[in-house]
Amino acid sequence: MILLELLLMLLVAYGVGFLYYGLYRNITARFQRRFGPPLWQSFFDSIKFFLKEESTSHGWMFYLGPIIMMSGAITTLFFIPFFKETTNFSGLSSYGNLFVVLYLLVLGPLGNALGVGTGGNPFGAMGVTRGLSRLFALELPFYIAVIAIMSLSGSADISEIAAHQSTMYALAYPLLFIGALFSFIGMMGQSPFDVVGAPVEVYSGPASEFSGKFLALLMSQSAIYTFAKLVLMVNLFLGGAQGFLELLLKTFVLFLFVISFGSLYGRFKTPQSIDFLLKVPTTIAVIGLILATWS
């Protein structure tokens, strides 16, 4: 039974993730005054890459990278319950709490670093270095906000945190939410924190050397991962969801906000983005933490 549920969760995340990517490309296209691709274009792309042949070999470690990332994304998804106050679509969340998820969030970039490091492509290595040096700054405001939330709701269980919110934490404690949102924009790889795969600087960063099936794997991974992160955000700050419709609505609003923000700002340099993340969102989150514990 649980296996069926997990499979369903995976399918939902896969489908909705690609749908969101399609919407993302369409919405940015409208920002840029054009028509945009078909809604399922990202899905077509990933299938196309899956059908391509591999012509290079960098050893098994290189290919382990995408596989670690993929498994990281899938397990992250399984530990995040889709809905509150029900055991449907809760996956493995009864076996692990928020700490497991936070740990799994770091697994992806690390796996990537392991793989890309053996690839020999200097741009890939550079992208990974950028990603890792940004990682700490990126996670800090998010962790502070999460700690505050855990102390507020008195639990580390995600569905309990979601259920605990009589008013959404985003409205009750806006400073915490803003601090975490900055991190979230970075985690989603949006401007101005998209230093990892900046095309005009380091080609496509860590993905430079991947082609064919492994690139398809990376694309599917990022679709699933995107949905997982959106659901996590909704559960932590937007009061969770009770049905699919509510979940889709809340995640989509969040997603729309993130991509509109990304369309309006240029890219920071790596030191600039670390600097910014350590100063502004961290300060906001710390003030939020103090206010939240004070009251």
């Binding site: 490309r25 054009r34 945009g36 691709p37 274009q41 077509f44 196309k48 290079t56 095309p199 050397e209």
Partner: peptide
């Protein structure tokens, strides 16, 4: 590739590296 003729509506888009290009 940009807004006037917009090749992306036919599924055509740019790729940065040769590994990913068709």
């Amino acid at each position: 590739f940009t807004s006037r003729y917009d090749a992306e509506r036919l599924g055509i888009r740019g790729a940065a590296t040769p590994r990913q290009a068709d």
